[in-house]
Nucleic acid binder design. Structure first.
Lengths: 213, 213
DNA sequence: GGGGTCATGTAATAGGTTACATGATTCT
DNA sequence: AGAATCATGTAACCTATTACATGACCCC
């Protein structure tokens, strides 16, 4: 697995938790949630148990004891094996050092732009800009708040990264919308032609309600 | 499905192909490849057939004829139904207008930074910057080349988007590396403490081979 | 005329997600 | 005391990916 299994980052998070101390799965989940890691790594209980199993099969972690507190269901506590320690370091190093191809939904959408008429695209992009600005405000304030509580930046770098990426996307969309309006994308007439727009409406002043630029 | 099925963008690409004309699956794939859409939408044959089936079950597309050319295997040609046309517009509009939460591998990596010692992280980030710069050169040249062939920008917006995002990430990583070096991330001693670094090596001039800043 | 590669698709497997289950704790 | 929520996990389902299959074309 050690090579094939590097798909789902939740497995990496599990290794990271266990590097700190042995835990049972549910505790890993709450730990991650407390630290806000679920904002960066998709987490749900179902997958968690699947992933833990698969890490065990791969010999990276090991069930240490099954304790039972009160009459709750048994909880299996897992510990990190040496192979797991190595895999953690290796995998994380790869994530940091090697830019990976990611398929984002927005990129998919952009690649199919010609399927919609330009006026519609313009309106949609304006909607996105507004939504992005909102999201940015929220993320920035969460981040600032954490820092004011004394959290060292080291533990919220992901958050700064998300903000930086959103800002960049916003700038891009802004520019793109401008380029569509001014026609500097080229092929505007062709584009409009695909979608038999009823009148020769050349979008002279027809702007939607957004005025973000 | 119309709501639950909006996970895999390949289905959207299928709808988009069929908006143009009826096709059999293999032809959709080659069409997408020709236009470089597989750079933006993950495509492999196995998934393609699964996705087409599921679109058919959902009543968005329909098998029109099964032709047979020479003694090749039968090919089923699919056509877009009205429900499919609507779904295409709806789905694409959502992708464009609504920023979605995406989990990227790099963000996952960043969120686990404290698992590695700061010196190692620094080296890894420098590797990433070098690799990103290479990737940027390649993508820019592909894009420019296409434009010089007369392709209107409209058909390569995704590519410009990828470039913009990579540039932004590069800038972020650059800044982050600086912040680690100068200690403005806070908690550097703590951080180093987690990983009992053998000597009190304070990374005085110990830089790796990259000199990107 | 035999070995590769293209064109086209199917089947088996693995991975992940949703839905469900059950006892404990807390709130009103 | 009953309702809601937390803590903990299992099982069934669905999706996607990999591996495989098969005839045709092409090149030497």
């Amino acid at each position: 697995m050690t090579k094939s299994k590097r798909s789902n980052a939740l497995a990496l998070a599990v290794l990271a938790c266990l590097q700190e101390r042995a835990m049972h799965p549910y505790e890993m989940a709450t730990t991650m949630r407390q630290r806000g890691k679920h904002e960066s790594i998709k987490l749900n209980y179902g997958s968690l148990y699947t992933v833990v199993q698969s890490l065990e099969r791969a010999g990276l972690i090991e069930a240490q004891e099954t304790e039972r507190e009160g009459r709750r269901p048994e909880r299996t506590v897992y510990g990190l094996l040496d192979a797991g320690r190595i895999e953690l370091i290796d995998w994380l190093s790869e994530l940091l050092s090697t830019p990976a191809k990611e398929f984002t939904q927005f990129e998919a959408g952009l690649s199919l732009l010609p399927c919609l008429p330009p006026e519609d695209v313009l309106a949609l992009l304006h909607d996105r800009m507004a939504a992005t600005e909102l999201a940015l405000v929220a993320e920035r304030s969460v981040c600032d708040h954490a820092y004011q509580q004394g959290l060292p930046r080291l533990f919220a770098v992901e958050s700064e990264y998300r903000i930086a990426m959103r800002e960049a996307e916003l700038a891009f969309v802004h520019q793109l919308a401008d380029d569509i309006r001014t026609g500097s994308l080229g092929g505007l007439e062709e584009w409009r032609g695909y979608h038999s727009a009823p009148p020769p409406l050349q979008l002279p002043e027809a702007r939607s309600e957004e005025a973000t630029e």
